[in-house]
């Protein structure tokens, strides 16, 4: 096999790796995203208003 073919295999392998990563669920990133959203919804950063009753706006 000519040596110049080897890098091509390497690139092909890496591309396949990229596809795999996009299909598999990024668990760590999801956890980070969940934490960020939960902090905002539960207002865990600023402790104000946590117990303030919500006004029903209708």
């Amino acid at each position: 096999m000519p040596r110049s073919v080897l890098p091509l295999f390497a690139v092909a392998g890496l591309l396949a790796g990229c596809v795999t990563i996009n299909i598999y669920f990024p668990a760590a990133a999801a956890e980070k995203a969940a934490d960020k959203i939960i902090d905002e919804v539960w207002q865990l950063q600023k402790k104000l208003d946590v117990t303030a009753p919500a006004k029903e706006t209708k």
Binding site: C18, I21, N22, P26, A28, A29, K32, A33, I37
Partner: peptide
Amino acid sequence: LLLLASGVALAQSNLEI
């Protein structure tokens, strides 16, 4: 290769929210 690898790393770091 380096460029592709860094692209992978970026794509892994965050979810779009």
